[in-house]
C-alpha cells in the first residue's frame, strides 16, 4: 500500500475539522470581546488593579493613608 502524506481520514473529516476550528476561533473572539467590554465598563481602573495581588499604595484611600 502506498504511503500517503495525508491520511484519508483528514479528507473525510475536513468539513468537521474546519467547523470545529471556526467554533474555537469564535470562542476566542467571544472571550476577548467580553474582556474588552468588561474592562471598559469599569469606572475606575483600580477596580481591576486590586485583583493582581501586588501591593499598590495608590489603592489605599487618602484618609487611611494619612
Amino acid at each position: 500500500m502506498a504511503i500517503k502524506v495525508e491520511h484519508e481520514m483528514h479528507t473525510r473529516r475536513k468539513g468537521r475539522n474546519i467547523g470545529v476550528g471556526l467554533l474555537l476561533t469564535g470562542l476566542i473572539g467571544i472571550v476577548f470581546g467580553l474582556t474588552v467590554v468588561k474592562v471598559l465598563q469599569l469606572d475606575n481602573i483600580t477596580q481591576l488593579e486590586k485583583f493582581d495581588h501586588v501591593a499598590r499604595p495608590q489603592l489605599i484611600p487618602q484618609e487611611e493613608a494619612n
Binding site: 481520514m9 473525510r12 473529516r13 468539513g15 468537521r16 467547523g19
Partner: peptide, 12 residues
Amino acid sequence: AYTSSATEPGMS
C-alpha cells in the same frame, strides 16, 4: 475502525 465507517457525521 476509521476506514470501515461508511459515513461520517458532518457539522449539519
